[in-house]
Design a protein around this nucleic acid. Structure first.
Lengths: 225, 225
DNA sequence: TCTCCTCTGGAACGTCGTTCCAACGTAGCT
DNA sequence: AGCTACGTTGGAACGACGTTCCAGAGGAGA
C-alpha cells in the first residue's frame, strides 16, 4: 500500500473534522470516517490528536475564533455588544454540533477569547470597573445559553415538518391545556406561534442592556427595544 | 436462573438510573450497569424504555419536576423569581449530568413545566402581557445556560486541586497575559479569583430584573443588589 | 388443564474510541 | 554510499457500548 506523499497536520485534521461535523452532525464524526476522508488509518490521526475530546475542542476553538475574528469598530457601545453577541449566536446556529461541546466545560480553553471580546464591549458601555467580571460573565452565560438552546431546538423541530407547522402545533397544544394548572402557558401560545428566534435573542440582549443601564442611571439610558 | 418475583416498572428503572447518574456521572450509566443493579438483563429494560435517550430524558424530567415541585408563595415577585431560578440552578448543580441533557433539545417535553413555573412569576412582576413570552423565555435561557455552564465548570475544575487553587491559577494566568491583546481579561483576574458562582448567578437574575423594571418605570424599581 | 400473552434476561451483533505495532521514509552520521 | 535512529504511517485488533433477538418463565382467562 503506497504511503501518503505529504504528511498529515493537526490543522488539516481539525478543518476536515469541522467539514464532517457541519455536513453530518455531531454523530457523523467518527475516527474511521475522518481517516477515510484523509486517506489514512485511524492510528495516524492519534499521532496528531490525543483523543476525540481534544479534536472536538479544537474544532470548536477554530469556529469560535473565526466568529470573533474582527472586533466591531463602529456604532454605539450597545450596537457593538449586539454585534458580538449575534456573531456567536449565528456561529452556533450554523454549526449546531458546537452546542454539545459548549456545555462540557472543555471549551474553557477557548473561553478567554470570548471573555475578551465581550468584556471590551462591557467596558465601553461604561460599566463600573468593579462590575466588569460579573457583567461580562453573565452576558456570556446568556449568549451561549440562548445559542445552545436555539441550536438544540432547531435540531428537534424539523423532524415533524416545516417550522411554521411545528410552532403552530406546539402553540395549539399549549392553548388547549388545563386553565388552572397551566394558567400561564395557555396564554402565550400565540406569541410562541409568531416568534422569531433571532429577534427573541436580541430582545434578551436588550433586556440585559437595560439592566446594565439601570445600574448607572446617572450616565444615560440604553438603546432601543 | 430464578426469575424476579416482582416485575420491573418504568419508575423503578428511572429512579435507579438517577442514582447511578448521581453517583458515577453521565459516563457511568450503562445498560449493563443498570441491569446489574436491577438484577436483570439489558433486554428486560428495553421492554419499559425505548432507548437510552428516552431514559435520560425521563431522568431529567424527574429531577426537574422535583425542583419545581412547590411554587414559592411568599415574598415579593422579585424574590419568587429568585427562588424558582435558584431551585433550577441548584438542581443542575447537584445533578451535573443533566447539563448535557438540557442542551440536546430532548427536554422540550419537560419545557412546559419550566415555562409555567417561571412564567407565573413574570406575570406577577407586572410585565405587560405582550412581553410575557419573550421575557419568560429569555429568563429561562439565562437560568439554564448559567446552570449548565456552572455544572460544566465544576466538572472541569476539581481535577487540578481545590477550588481556591484552581481559581487562583486561572486568575494569575490572566493577569500575566499581554497588556494589549488581552487588555480586558488582564484586569479582571482578581474578580475571578474571589467570585462565588451562586452570587454571580443571582447577580445575573438581578440584572434581568432591573432590565424588566426599566421597561415599565411607571410601576416601581426592582429590588436587590 | 391448556393456551395465550406479557415480561424476562442472557446471548449475540455491529459500531465506536482507542491501542498496538510492523513497516516505511527521511535525516544525520560514519 | 551505506547504515542507523527516529518520526510517522495505517491497518489490525481490543474492549465497551447501545441495541436486537429470542427462548422461555409465569400468571390470567377459558
Amino acid at each position: 500500500m503506497p504511503r501518503r506523499s505529504e504528511s498529515l497536520s493537526r490543522e488539516q485534521i481539525v478543518s476536515t473534522a469541522v467539514g464532517i461535523l457541519d455536513a453530518a452532525g455531531a454523530g457523523g464524526l467518527t475516527f474511521r470516517v475522518l481517516a477515510e476522508r484523509l486517506a489514512t488509518g485511524p492510528g495516524a490521526i492519534y499521532w496528531h490528536v490525543a483523543n476525540k475530546d481534544e479534536l472536538l475542542t479544537a474544532a470548536t476553538d477554530a469556529v469560535v475564533a473565526r466568529a470573533l475574528a474582527e472586533e466591531p469598530a463602529s456604532g454605539s457601545p450597545e450596537d457593538r455588544v449586539r454585534a458580538v453577541a449575534l456573531g456567536l449566536f449565528d456561529a452556533v446556529d450554523q454549526h449546531p454540533w458546537m452546542a454539545a461541546q459548549l456545555s462540557t466545560g472543555t471549551w474553557q480553553a477557548t473561553s478567554p477569547h470570548v471573555l475578551e471580546a465581550v468584556g471590551r464591549q462591557v467596558r465601553a458601555l461604561g460599566v463600573p470597573r468593579a462590575d466588569w467580571f460579573v457583567t461580562t460573565t453573565v452576558l456570556i452565560q446568556y449568549i451561549l445559553g440562548a445559542a445552545v438552546q436555539n441550536a438544540a431546538n432547531a435540531q428537534a423541530a424539523p423532524r415533524v415538518g416545516s417550522r411554521g407547522e411545528f410552532l403552530d402545533a406546539v402553540a395549539t397544544a399549549w392553548e388547549e391545556l388545563d386553565a388552572e394548572e397551566w394558567s400561564f402557558t395557555r396564554t402565550i401560545g400565540d406569541q410562541m406561534r409568531h416568534h422569531d428566534d433571532r429577534e427573541q435573542f436580541l430582545a434578551g440582549i436588550d433586556l440585559a442592556l437595560r439592566g446594565i443601564a439601570a445600574s448607572r442611571p446617572q450616565v444615560r439610558a440604553a438603546g432601543g427595544a
